[in-house]
Design a protein around this nucleic acid. Structure first.
Lengths: 277, 277
DNA sequence: TCAAACTTTGACGAAGCGTCATTTTATGAT
DNA sequence: ATCATAAAATGACGCTTCGTCAAAGTTTGA
């Protein structure tokens, strides 16, 4: 976030240097509309609102016409702005996907924060986090695909570096939240990993399982191995096996985590669950 | 595979029915070059060889220019055939991706079959299967992305139904292989799930963890949560935790699975490991 | 040897992407 | 209030990519 902050506010094009307009850019050459953190002018406020508006329109198109149905031309046609303006926000199509992913991540983070405030053991909170992830993938099916898609070289190669950086920051934020939970669990004696390294490994294991399960459940519903499954319980089953393997107390034969799962839906994410039906 | 097999060999266009040429199609309207299983004519043999050739060229382009660098026009330019001929093989770009994925799946299956023949306990064989998956994602980075990508709506919406069906068959094949291993483990007393349902659940859990770990390791290498990791052990760690959670004997504190992991690399996949360096 | 069946070809139209010269709007100094 | 200047918005344009199809070429088997 320190990039180019030291430059004078107005610079001429002279000398071949890139113009750095009032609306400063985080990134030297490609990412438009990625603000330095400071008080926003009225103009910048407008720009930000418009960005949200554009993302909404894009999401609607995607929800309606599928992933490949979203094109820049369609987005331009569907909104009240011109092509140039849209491209002022998103450097290219992949950048747009990245922005949609960012929006999704922010949503997930807000859910995760609520999950962590839940009453219960550290293991129950962990389940609540996983529940949050699944909620997102159910509520915003297409957007959750963006989160997936953004990891793909096709996107990483083309999206603006600024947006990729934001994406990474958000990932870091989630990681830190999970790290904290793990630390709490260790402190409370619910789990006892040997070395400092193991916290990282545990965090990665949780992520892998949660991500793997949700991704497959969301995309491969008519695969035999998924179709034959009791899908409502699959995620909980997977997580319980993993958490048992980690010896994260209380073990699943000591406590009925189906009840916990229900409780999470009712107490923590009531509004979201309701919105789903 | 029973689709349209009962139709007479030659049918006229009359009556509005789709032409079903000598080179029969599995699919009524879109998938080209998807053969019914029977002795192949010389012509068909040529066509199949050419398909492999085209896939090779496509893979090379992708390896060189990245995922989005592969376009139909480039493929046409890089091979000795015309656009029409290429489109005779692949209904569209997504169909090509699907074909690349299929090729990858076939490779994985061949590795998995070797993994199952390994000397050792059922749990060790299970690790060998996971090892096979990881090998594929390391040896054919781009192709393994195709396997991922194909699950995405963007591809499913457009790929020919015939190829998607083949894809599903191959998935089924792997599922059956894993099912069999689980059944063996239960019979040998290495694991004791309660009900029939649990076999499905166990299979799904294995798949989720293996897929999730590999996908993240392959794509998100510069994410904080991955970068800080001991990546060479992450997959083994994840699998051991999961298998411990399943109480799949011998537990990881009874047996040094790092040794097993080494052994798999040396004994089962020596050639592939060597090819990687 | 020939007609029918099948394949190959590449020019073409449509659609998508991203750019940039030009026009419009906002800002702030006088 | 006026005007010069900076910034933003516009949309026509050029280029790439996609996928089609009528026509030309090739194979098959009678």
């Amino acid at each position: 976030m320190t990039l180019r902050q030291s430059l004078t506010k107005r610079q001429k094009t002279k000398g071949g240097l890139a113009v750095v307009p009032m609306m400063q850019k985080c990134d030297s050459n490609d990412n438009p509309k990625c603000f330095i953190r400071r008080a926003l002018t009225k103009r910048e406020q407008n720009v930000m609102n418009r960005e949200l508006e554009l993302l909404d329109v894009a999401e609607k198109i995607m929800a309606h016409e599928g992933f490949s149905g979203l094109t820049m031309d369609k987005l331009v046609a569907a909104c009240d702005y011109s092509k140039g303006t849209v491209y002022n926000h998103f450097a290219n199509k992949e950048d747009l996907f990245c922005a949609l992913s960012t929006k999704g991540m922010k949503f997930i983070i807000s859910l995760v924060k609520r999950a962590l405030k839940m009453q219960g053991s550290s293991r129950e909170k962990c389940l609540a986090i996983v529940y949050a992830h699944q909620l997102h993938s159910q509520m915003h099916v297409t957007a959750s695909f963006c989160v997936l898609m953004v990891k793909t070289p096709a996107v990483l190669e083309r999206a603006s570096t600024g947006r990729i950086a934001i994406q990474r920051e958000l990932e870091m934020e989630i990681t830190l939240l999970v790290d904290e939970l793990i630390a709490q669990a260790i402190e409370a004696g619910d789990m006892t990993p040997n070395r400092r390294d193991d916290i990282n490994a545990v965090c990665f294991a949780l992520w892998s399982m949660s991500f793997g399960s949700s991704a497959i459940l969301a995309s491969a519903q008519d695969t035999e191995a998924v179709a034959r499954l009791d899908m409502s319980n699959a995620l909980l089953f997977n997580m319980n096996v993993l958490l048992d393997g980690l010896k994260w107390l209380p073990m699943s034969d000591e406590l009925d985590y189906h009840a916990t799962w229900q409780r999470i839906g009712k107490e923590v994410f009531a509004a979201e669950v309701a919105a789903l039906s």
